[in-house]
């Protein structure tokens, strides 16, 4: 350890991960994947993995990926909900890993909701 910068670099590298262990970081964006039996049967697991993979690749420290149970709209599974602080929740339906990738890129990174995958567009 030769310098403060070096220490800071380690801190920054690890801190994003540690945010997970802070109680409900208010600034965290949450990606919530429906992982009930219906969701898993419809292919939610690869969607969840894609979300984790994308968040990791893009080093999105402020994003948390969690799952939830059945929300009662099984025909739309796999369902993913995105909670951005200070904004309305957005629900995406009939998800695939490819769609997930696009949503991370456009919605979470660029702040553009992907209208065609939302529940509103699919009802």
């Amino acid at each position: 350890m030769k310098s403060l910068e070096e220490l800071k670099a380690i801190r920054e590298r690890t801190r994003g991960q540690m945010n997970l262990r802070k109680e409900d970081g208010p600034d965290n964006t949450r990606i919530v994947v429906g992982m009930a039996t219906c969701g898993i049967a419809a292919g939610a697991k690869p969607v969840l993995s894609a979300a984790v993979d994308q968040v990791g690749r893009r080093k999105l420290d402020h994003v948390v990926v969690t799952q939830t149970g059945c929300i009662g709209m099984c025909m739309y599974e796999p369902i993913v909900e995105i909670y951005v602080p200070g904004q309305e929740k957005v629900t995406y339906v009939k998800m695939t890993p490819e769609r997930m990738e696009k949503i991370v890129a456009e919605h979470i990174v660029n702040g553009q909701i992907v209208g065609e995958y939302t529940i509103g567009a699919n009802e």
């Binding site: 994003g16 997970l20 968040v55």
Partner: peptide, 10 residues
């Protein structure tokens, strides 16, 4: 560090 979505602390 890789992104992990869940930490299980034991």
């Amino acid at each position: 560090m890789e992104f992990v979505r869940s930490h299980i602390l034991v």
